[in-house]
Design a binder for these strands. Structure first.
Lengths: 210, 210
DNA sequence: GGTGTGGCCTACTCGCACGTAGGATGTCCG
DNA sequence: CGGACATCCTACGTGCGAGTAGGCCACACC
């Protein structure tokens, strides 16, 4: 999927001119590479520009600052995650299949776009309000969709269902992240189904009394 | 739990002299406050010194640099977490109780020392090798202790047991972190037991065949 | 062929925060 | 009392990287 991962931070030809929108997309792509590799702080605007085969001021003609550039990318991926999760839950009416589909969604999410999921799950900028807000909100949304279903089918209070939802989504996130770094140990289908089985056994027909 | 959260970063008396070891402990404590509040990058050595009622060079007489100071704290807390987890798993021979105890361990861990768990779970320095290594290694250790037990009692392969272990530990981490930020919604005991029940239902007598 | 507009570049400023040089001051022992 | 040692301070050097000033060049349209 990468054409070059060699030593030199490989500046591109540096001669091409692009229309505004195409350049913007390319800058986003270059920025994603650099942010994912190094995190926000270690990423230099110079390197992003170089990676796109362009000089720094061009970057600032498209984005007002480093933070805004980062947020633009982050928004893309949190939305992607939430949508995948929503679609998985809506894909069937049977809860067992819903669980499977949702784990599938998380495993898919961490498999796409290089390692873009790191922007959401491993951001080194969570201490900055707008970033924290986006990340927490997106996970919260996923958890709420899950907990709504839990609450329908069990006698749990709202608070209990929320906690369960957060835990399940967290399990999906963490296991998917672990799996993706250990490619080769287990095929994707098997990993998804293993975790889905664990979750489904845990949550199905959750007892109403302690 | 905080005595002061006012505007001024409250420098202490600034006159007291302390023996070397006591000063070191106090510096660690001040550093922990600042790192937890702001993360690594937004934490200034000046503020840590101020917070301890001391000037910056003193800090550098105790720690060679900012990173080493951070690592000293991080080591403390990853070890704490692993030990709690180990003790929980060793506290009984019955697996159901082990699950309960382990969730208890994670909920305890996030409840102690201000919010020191953020250093482990939300470090904004995971892209730096020594930090990443410590964090991942500690979670890996917890997961391996869990997966060893899983492998004993199920027909899972080693890879499968590892994935399950990581998922369960991840669920404990995420749910504990969520619970601690929502103090008041559910009492600690209830939250622990709810999650433990979810996990135990999921993992107990895990089927040997797909 | 001129002229304007849009895309691009080189080269710079500037602030911030880590880390340090060199000096003052309190305490303990001969 | 005097000097040695340890603790601490004020004030500075320094590097790095975000963001900017000002100018060049290609292409399109008159």
């Amino acid at each position: 999927m990468e054409t070059r991962v060699t030593a030199t931070p490989d500046a591109k030809p540096r001669g091409t001119r692009l229309p505004r929108l195409a350049r913007r997309r390319q800058l986003l792509s270059a920025a994603q590479e650099v942010f994912v590799e190094n995190g926000y702080h270690a990423a230099a605007m110079d390197e992003i520009a170089d990676r796109a085969g362009v000089s720094k001021p061009v970057l600032y003609q498209h984005f007002p600052g480093k933070l805004e550039l980062y947020l633009a990318l982050l928004d893309l991926h949190v939305d992607d995650m939430v949508n995948r999760c929503r679609e998985a839950l809506a894909s069937t009416q049977e809860n067992k299949l819903r669980v499977q589909a949702t784990f599938g969604a998380f495993f898919d999410f961490v498999s796409t776009q290089g390692e873009a999921f790191r922007l959401v799950f491993e951001s080194d900028l969570r201490n900055v309000a707008p970033v924290r807000q986006r990340v927490e909100r997106s996970l919260q949304e996923c958890a709420e969709m899950v907990s709504a279903l839990i609450q329908e089918d069990t006698g749990c209070t709202s608070d209990e269902a929320h906690l369960l939802g957060v835990g399940l989504v967290g399990m999906a996130e963490v296991s998917a992240r672990y799996w993706v770094t250990k490619h080769g140990s287990i095929p994707k289908d098997a990993a998804e189904q293993l975790m889905a089985r664990l979750a489904w056994r845990g949550i199905s027909g959750f007892p109403r009394t302690a």
